[in-house]
Nucleic acid binder design. Structure first.
Lengths: 194, 194
DNA sequence: CCTATCTTGGAATGACTGGTCCAAGATAGC
DNA sequence: GCTATCTTGGACCAGTCATTCCAAGATAGG
C-alpha cells in the first residue's frame, strides 16, 4: 500500500561518506549533502535521522566497507613482513594518489575533530584501532625473519600508530617517498639482523 | 595622543590558542572566543583580523611556544636514544594527563580538519613536520648504540610519523601504557642487537 | 479507480554564523 | 582641561545552520 523510497539509501550513504570523509563533519552543511545526493531534506531526515546520526552511519560504513576488508586481507596474508609492507604500500598509494588523494583516513580525521566527543564515535575509533592492531599482530605472527626477542604485541601497536601518522601527513600532501622511507625504517628495524 | 589597548594581546592569543587547540577551528565560534577572552568583537577584529587570521596566529603561537622549545631540547640533548625516549615519555604524559589531556596536538588536529585547505596553514604543518624530523635526526646522530647500517634519515621520519600517531590516539583517550609500548617497540628496534 | 500509507519537494523555522559599524569612552600630549 | 586619536561595547547585518512541517505526489493492494 505505501509508497516506496525513490532512491537507494546505500548509494546515498556512500556519497555522504565521501563528503564527510573529504571535508569533515563540522565543515559540511546539510545543504551540501542535499545538493550532492540529489535527495530532499525530508527524505534525508526520514531515512538517516539528523546530522550526527548521519555522520555516525557514514563513519560505520567507512569502517565496514573500507577498513575492515583491508584489515582482513592483512591478517589473512601469510607472508609476514611482506604482507605488512604490501599493506603500507597500498595505503600510501591510496592516500597520495587517485580518487581519494589527500583525503586522509576518515577515522584518523575523526580523531582530530570535535566529532570525537560523541561516545558512539569514540567507540568506533577504539574498535578501529583495536582491529588494525590485531591484524598487524596476526601478520607479525606469521613472520619468520623477525629480530629475536621482539615483542610482537608492542610492535603491532607501533605499526598501527605509524599508519595513523601516515594517514595524517598524507592529508597535508606529504611526499609519498618520505612516507615510504619512514615505513621502511620501521619494517627493516623489525627484521632479523644478518 | 591615541588611546591604548585595554588588554594584553599576547595573553588573549594564548586563550584563543587553547580554545582552538581543544575544540578545533570549525566548531569554535567567534562568540565563544569573545566570551572566553572577555574582550569585545571590535577589539578582536581590530587586533587579530578575521577568524581565519586569528586561527593562523594561534597556530603559529602554538608552534613557537609549545613545539619548538621541545624540538630544540630534543636536538640539544646529546643522550641519543635516551633523549628520544624522554621526548616520547613527556609527550605521552602531556597528552594523556594534566591540563591538556585529550586535547591532542594542535598541529596534528589541523592536519585532519578542513583548515588544512588554507595554504598558509599547510606551510605551518609542513614546517612543523620538517623540524620534528630534523630534531629526531640530530638526536639519532648523537646515539652510539644504534643497529649497524641504520638509515638515520628514514628512522627520523619514522619517529616523527609515530609522534603524530601518538598525538591522534591520545585525543581519543588511548591508554598511555599502550602508547608507551608502541614507542618502546620502535626504539628497541633501532638499538644495536646484543 | 480508489484509498490508505508512505515519500517527496520546498517553504518556513529560530538559532547562530562571521563580520561590520558607529556612537560613546578612554587616553596622552598640549 | 582640551582635543586629536585610538579603543571599546554592543547593536546590527545578511547569510547559513540544522531541523520541522505540510500539502502534493507516488505507490500498490483492493
Amino acid at each position: 500500500m505505501p509508497d516506496v523510497k525513490h532512491f537507494d539509501p546505500e548509494a546515498v550513504l556512500e556519497q555522504v561518506e565521501r563528503l564527510f570523509w573529504q571535508r569533515g563533519a563540522a565543515s559540511t552543511g546539510i545543504a551540501e549533502v542535499v545538493a550532492v545526493t540529489g535527495i530532499s531534506r525530508s527524505s534525508l531526515y526520514a531515512t538517516f535521522g539528523g546530522k550526527q546520526e548521519l555522520y555516525v552511519k557514514a563513519l560505520r560504513r567507512y569502517v565496514e566497507r573500507r577498513s575492515q576488508p583491508v584489515f582482513q586481507a592483512l591478517a589473512d596474508d601469510g607472508r609476514g613482513l611482506r604482507a605488512i609492507e604490501g599493506f603500507f604500500d597500498r595505503l600510501i598509494e591510496a592516500r597520495c594518489a587517485g580518487e581519494h588523494a589527500r583525503w586522509g583516513c576518515m577515522i584518523s580525521n575523526a580523531h582530530a575533530g570535535a566529532e570525537g566527543g560523541d561516545p558512539e564515535v569514540r567507540g568506533v575509533l577504539d574498535r578501529h584501532q583495536e582491529r588494525l592492531r590485531a591484524a598487524m599482530r596476526t601478520a607479525l605472527g606469521a613472520a619468520h625473519d623477525l629480530r629475536p626477542g621482539l615483542d610482537l604485541d608492542a610492535a603491532a601497536e607501533m605499526l598501527a600508530l605509524l599508519a595513523y601518522g601516515v594517514n595524517l601527513r598524507s592529508r597535508a600532501g606529504a611526499d609519498p617517498a618520505d612516507l615510504r622511507r619512514g615505513v621502511s625504517a620501521a619494517l627493516n628495524s623489525l627484521k632479523e639482523p644478518k
